[in-house]
Design a protein around this nucleic acid. Structure first.
Length: 841
DNA sequence: GCGGATCAC
DNA sequence: TATGGTGATCCGC
């Protein structure tokens, strides 16, 4: 646990780490060295700078080591020098520009800027009460907690998104977590409500455990550690104002009242209460800031850190007083580079920032000087903006030098694979692929390429990335490209608007005529037989992967992706009237945009836009020579109009080689459908692929039996679901499990379930869990949309693994920033009923 | 749209 | 021990 936590939190940032690496006295040492050295600015650039936050706890040896390291001419250091030189040049340029400014120009600028100041002043909003909560010494505190010398005791260490759920949401249901250890709350409304609350509603109890002798010891340890001698834990400091210890009313409600405290109704009291509850819950302290806007609140929380709080009252003068002597480096958004540039202009404090406003408007970009002006006036955001849509996703890795093209390509592919998995988890596809390289001299390069249709699979991304990499390798040729970092990023995602549009189009398309599906189960064979695959495939080299790779090589586009990306959307952007275009496409059969239809079986373009004809072709194609002996085709006349046809890949040992490709394509198309499931809203289809767990190396890609036995079972639930047990051509397996959402099969214990969407092995042997996972993979976006839209109070169904202990700590950083995307649970019934409603419209 | 850079966490 | 990873944004081109 401990190791994990440290790993997880360790990603958060050097600022925080520095806090624990350097004490004040140590900083003095650093400064001495710094002042005596000829390495002007470099140490500052390297982050040995205590302006931003206090530094604590540390030994001189470490610092000397680091300085030694820094001065001995390492590649890293050389690069820092180089960057610093560049910055100095930038500053030089700025100073030259400054010299050219005439007093006339400055005067004019002054008038202009002051006009803006007037406007800004008029729009100043002091009516909100924003709180910023910042967990103290998060890493070290966790480490302390897990230190075996402190007695072993279970503690509730959690992230902000956990305190979400458990504490912060009570004060602001829309509070905004920022990473693992910070959050903003708007408690304006809550404060009004609380005014009328009786004392009992504001009473909180000490954790009974904390009254034991052991805990007193614990508190002492922690107090030492927190470096704030008078302010740890449930210290008197926390309750010195209105809050009263109420051990004088033991009659009120049993013995526990003795250990309770009542908080008042002011903002300060509320924040004390929050901090008290956080500490009782996690045994970690928090600092907090209270102010009329987010920027001020954040700076306030830093003001009395650790384990303190500070409030800027909602008065203009109080705001300006706070800002007056504040070093600009304390301002969020002003980093070490901006600090140095401003310092060159003689600007160190926020009041100086205000004094030089005219000059700044002439030297910096509009966005920059506007921001400077806001800062110097103490203006900031008064509402907590919801995180918007994700704009990019990336993965990068640092390693010891890699200099052979072969290794670089294989690494690149690996990164693409990882990224593809993450993208598919969120159902994202992007048009721009960016390759990032850092050479052994620490020089960073990015190379980007934007392609016409969005990409999301390993192969698709790699196809772009490998070209970018190749270009870079060629550029340095005949020398080898020597790198220490490689990264791949995908950006340019479809907007939510475009996604909705796409989903509706697909839904309508599927509803409009016959359903198309690519598998049918063979009568007389148990589903278990289809599910259990006696092959040597592994997740990474799975059947689907092979098909995908083959498809990529042949430049064959995915059926539905093709439909969506290229046909449905073909003319959309050029259309001036979106709504018009929308209605045009929803009746896809008549759409002029849909001129070309790619048959998923023969992969040939069909010129007809008539769905009947297309279906006829499809039927013929499937019924024809392609699949004669091995694949049985059925139009399934017994089913109603919208039921799914099942085509079957039967377990025939005598599959002819010439038929393999077609069958491959068939299965490949099956995969296409599944990967595009997010957009297609075929939300409850499940593809179950079970393979025997065998080593990767033993895989035989060309084994026909492998291919033939690797059967997708597609269970179609909606819009017109055929319950498996009711489909007369299907034999219900004995251990079938029926639930509200789907039919499940039980996996054999020694089998491994592989999600066909994300291609990851699933730890569970329960098909229920597995299906749940596939559902998540396929439908994340849709589920989220639906659950957001509906608020019916049905039972909450946890969609994540049930063994999700401490998940909040394991969330990937994109989830840290976007807790709403973590989708910890959904209201399944709502989702299903809504889905039916939607599909039947 | 691309590439470098800055910033936050 | 040797110096992270992810995401957003801005600016100049």
């Amino acid at each position: 646990m401990h190791k994990y936590l440290m790993t997880s939190f360790g990603l958060a940032g050097t600022k925080s780490l520095n806090k624990f690496l350097f004490s004040r006295s140590a900083m003095d040492d650093i400064k001495k060295v710094y002042n005596n050295s000829c390495n002007d600015g470099v140490l500052l650039r390297m982050g040995l700078n205590d302006n931003k936050a206090g530094m604590q706890g540390l030994d001189k040896e470490k610092i000397n080591k680091i300085i030694m390291e820094a001065t001995k001419g390492s590649r890293f250091y050389e690069n820092e020098l180089k960057k610093d030189k560049q910055l100095n040049q930038r500053i030089e340029k700025m100073m030259q520009l400054k010299e050219k400014i005439t007093s006339q120009q400055l005067l004019k600028a002054q008038l202009q800027v002051d006009k803006l100041v007037m406007e800004l002043e008029q729009s100043r909003n002091l009516s909100c009460t924003i709180v910023h909560i910042d967990m103290d010494a998060f890493y070290a505190a966790v480490e302390m907690r897990d230190n075996p010398e402190l007695k072993e005791k279970p503690i509730a260490v959690g992230s902000m998104s956990m305190l979400v759920r458990e504490i912060l949401a009570e004060y602001d249901p829309n509070f905004m977590p920022m990473g693992l250890d910070e959050a903003y709350l708007n408690i304006t409304e809550y404060l009004e409500e609380r005014l009328n609350w009786p004392e009992d509603k504001r009473r909180w109890y000490f954790n009974t455990e904390s009254t034991t002798e052991n805990d007193k010891q614990d508190i002492n340890m922690s107090a030492k550690f927190s470096l704030n001698e008078d302010a740890f834990s449930s210290s008197p400091l926390l309750f010195e104002d209105n809050a009263s210890l109420t051990d004088d009313h033991p009659e009120q409600r049993g013995p526990s009242v003795v250990n309770s405290v009542v908080f008042g109704t002011s903002a300060e009291e509320v924040v004390k209460e929050i901090r008290f509850r956080i500490e009782q819950k996690t045994r970690l302290t928090a600092s907090a800031g209270i102010a009329p806007n987010t920027m001020l609140a954040k700076m306030c929380s830093d003001h009395n850190k650790p384990n303190g709080q500070y409030r800027i009252t909602p008065e203009r003068q109080a705001v300006l007083d706070f800002m007056k002597d504040l070093p600009i480096r304390k301002v969020p958004g002003i980093g070490k580079v901006t600090e140095k540039m401003l310092k060159a202009l003689g600007i160190v404090t926020c009041s100086e920032l205000y004094q030089q406003r005219a000059l700044l408007s002439l030297l910096f970009s509009e966005a920059s000087w506007h921001n400077f002006l806001d800062v110097s006036l103490g203006l900031g955001s008064t509402h907590l903006e919801k995180d918007g849509e994700r704009k990019s996703m990336s993965t990068e890795r640092t390693f010891s030098e890699i200099n052979t093209a072969e290794d670089q390509y294989s690494l690149c592919r690996e990164l693409c694979r990882d990224l593809a998995q993450e993208l598919q988890k969120e159902g994202l596809k992007g048009k721009t692929v960016t390759l990032k390289l850092k050479n052994v001299n620490f020089e960073v390069k990015t190379r980007a390429s934007t392609v016409p249709s969005s990409v999301s699979t390993e192969e698709e991304i790699f196809a772009v990335a490998k070209d970018l990499l190749g270009t870079e390798i060629d550029t340095v040729s005949p020398h080898p490209l020597r790198i220490r970092l490689m990264g791949v990023r995908v950006s340019g995602f479809l907007s939510e608007e475009e996604k909705k549009y796409q989903q509706k189009s697909i839904t309508n398309f599927l509803k409009s005529g016959k359903e198309i599906s690519f598998l049918r189960l063979e009568p007389g064979k148990s589903n278990q037989e289809y599910c259990t695959k006696n092959s040597e495939a592994t997740p990474r080299g799975s059947f689907f992967d092979k098909k995908r790779a083959a498809r990529q090589q042949n430049n064959e586009d995915l059926f539905l992706n093709e439909m969506v990306d290229k046909q449905l959307f073909h003319d959309r952007k050029s259309s001036a009237n979106f709504m018009e275009e929308k209605s045009k496409v929803t009746t896809i059969q008549n759409s002029a945009a849909c001129k070309i239809f790619t048959c998923p079986v023969c992969f040939e373009e069909q010129r007809s836009s008539n769905l009947e004809e297309l279906n006829r072709h499809l039927d013929e194609c499937l019924a024809g020579s392609l699949v004669k002996d091995t694949v049985e085709i059925s139009k399934n006349k017994n089913s109603k109009e919208n039921t799914f046809n099942f085509f079957q890949c039967c377990k025939n040992e005598n599959v002819e080689v010439c038929q393999k490709n077609k069958t491959d394509q068939l299965a490949g198309t099956c995969q296409s459908t599944s990967t595009s499931g997010n957009s297609a809203r075929n939300s409850t289809e499940k593809f179950t692929q079970i393979v025997v767990d065998k080593p990767h190396e033993e895989r035989q890609p060309s084994q026909l039996s492998d291919m033939a036995q690797n059967v997708c079972i597609k269970q179609s639930l909606l819009p017109k679901r055929i319950p498996l047990e009711n489909a007369d051509h299907l034999e219900k397996p004995e251990n079938i499990e029926e639930t509200s959402s789907s039919c499940f099969f039980e996996a054999k214990e020694d089998n491994v379930l592989v999600c066909p969407v994300c291609n990851l092995e699933q730890k569970t042997t329960s098909l229920m869990s597995f299906n749940r996972h596939v559902d998540i993979c396929l439908n994340k976006g849709i589920i989220q949309e639906l659950t957001e839209k509906n608020d019916c109070p049905t039972k909450t169904y946890n969609m994540e693994n049930s063994d999700r202990v401490g998940l909040d700590l394991q969330l990937h950083s994109q989830y840290q920033k976007r807790p709403s995307q973590a989708i910890p649970s959904i209201q399944l019934k709502c989702f299903l009923s809504d889905y039916v409603a939607m599909c039947s419209v």
